[in-house]
Amino acid sequence: MKINHLTPAEENLMKLFWKLESFYLKDIMEQHSEPKPHQNTVSTYLKILVEKGYLSTEKEGRIFKYTVLVPLEEYRKFLLKEISHHFFNDSGKEILEFLFNENLISQEDLRGYFDLKIEMKPAKIKEPKHEYANEVLNPKKDKKSKDKKKKKKKDQPK
């Protein structure tokens, strides 16, 4: 099943839908926090989410019953893989270092989860090398010119 990206508004509604799992439009209107959106707005979002494959519909008389097709866990995996690919070079290590350096995860969290006796230290940020800039700013002199200067110094009387 291919999972598509959600807009922030769609994602907000899906958070409610994931709690309900199966629902009618009236259930959404009752459950939605204040300020409640207009019923037509919710209907439009429901139609879009059905088209994107997040919800299915089942007609019961004159109304539709909606059921969640993409579980929250699948969407979370999708988002984490997207973030990992686009921002962390598909590296779990880079994600973990980032979370640790940003204080979003602690050593205690890691110990508790992995039951390890390790101590993580923040990664040292290496200074970028500016080799080309150094070559331009401080050009190396040829050996020949150095040799000539040495000979001139030797040839000069003291």
Rank of each mutant, 00 (worst) to 15 (best):
E34M: 11
F64G: 01
E74R: 10
E34I: 13
D147V: 08
H86Q: 13
R111C: 07
S33P: 04
D115V: 09
M120N: 06
E94Q: 13
E119V: 08
E73Y: 06
N89P: 00
S145A: 13
Q39G: 01
K126W: 07
G92T: 05
V68R: 02
L49S: 03
S84P: 00
K121D: 10
V42E: 03
K65Q: 13
E74N: 12
R62A: 13
E30D: 13
H85I: 02
P71A: 11
L137F: 12
K59Q: 11
K150R: 15
I118G: 03
F98G: 00
N138P: 02
L137H: 09
Q39K: 15
F114I: 05
K126V: 12
S43I: 01
D155M: 10
K149C: 02
H86W: 09
P37Q: 07
F114M: 12
R76L: 08
K140M: 10
N134W: 09
E102W: 04
G61Y: 05
E34F: 14
Q31S: 12
T44P: 00
K93N: 12
G53M: 02
D115L: 15
K81S: 05
S145Q: 15
Q39C: 08
L72V: 05
S91I: 05
K124D: 12
D115A: 10
K81A: 04
S106D: 10
F114E: 06
L110A: 04
P122Q: 11
L110S: 06
V42H: 04
S33C: 06
Y45R: 14
K153T: 06
S43F: 04
G53L: 03
K129E: 14
N89S: 15
E30T: 07
D27N: 14
E97M: 07
T67R: 13
E102I: 01
E60C: 04
V68N: 00
D147M: 13
D155E: 15
E60I: 06
L104V: 01
K151L: 11
V68D: 01
E73I: 13
K143F: 14
K36H: 10
T67Q: 12
Y113P: 00
L96M: 13
I95A: 05
L72T: 04
S33Q: 14
F98Y: 15
N103I: 00
G112L: 12
E119P: 00
S84N: 02
K152V: 09
K153D: 07
L96P: 01
K52Q: 03
K140Y: 09
L99W: 06
N40Q: 14
K59C: 00
Y132N: 11
Y132K: 11
A133S: 08
I63L: 12
Q107P: 09
S33H: 13
G61N: 10
P122G: 10
E108C: 03
E131W: 11
V68A: 03
K126F: 07
K36R: 13
G112D: 15
F87R: 08
G53H: 06
E108P: 01
K149P: 02
L137D: 12
P37K: 06
L79Q: 11
H32C: 03
G92M: 03
Q107D: 14
M120C: 15
H85E: 11
K65M: 08
F88L: 08
E82K: 10
L96S: 08
R111P: 00
D155Y: 05
E119H: 15
V70H: 01
I63G: 04
P37L: 09
D142C: 07
S106N: 09
V68Q: 01
H86P: 00
